[in-house]
Amino acid sequence: MSDPYGGYIEPLVEVRETGKEIEIYVDLPFVEDSKDVRVEVLDDELEITAAMRRSVRWERWGTYQRFQAFSQYRTRIRLPGDVDAQNARATFRNGVLKVILPKRINKVKVNVE
């Protein structure tokens, strides 16, 4: 049967905000190495793709199909605010990708009378 997902699966994502940063955690089971993960900042979104070490095939009855096979993750995450993409950093450990994006904060002092 055809695979409408094109071999991609959407991973579970958690977005946390601290005062100065946006932290994004992405669960990537079956991904082995940081070299298999690609992270890109696109305006107000973060795009993540990652290759699994092997293709995963599920058999189940869904609305569209009976079989699903995946070999990659792909997701786009809407960022909750402006970020300084140049200073973004990412680590991949124990199957979890952590991306830290510094917030771009325009601070203007307001006089109190």
Binding site: P29, F30, W58
Partner: peptide, 14 residues
């Protein structure tokens, strides 16, 4: 089997 479990329980987690 952690990877397998995590992937198969993704929908239930959502």
């Amino acid at each position: 089997k952690a990877d397998e479990i995590k992937l198969s329980m993704k929908d239930l987690m959502r």
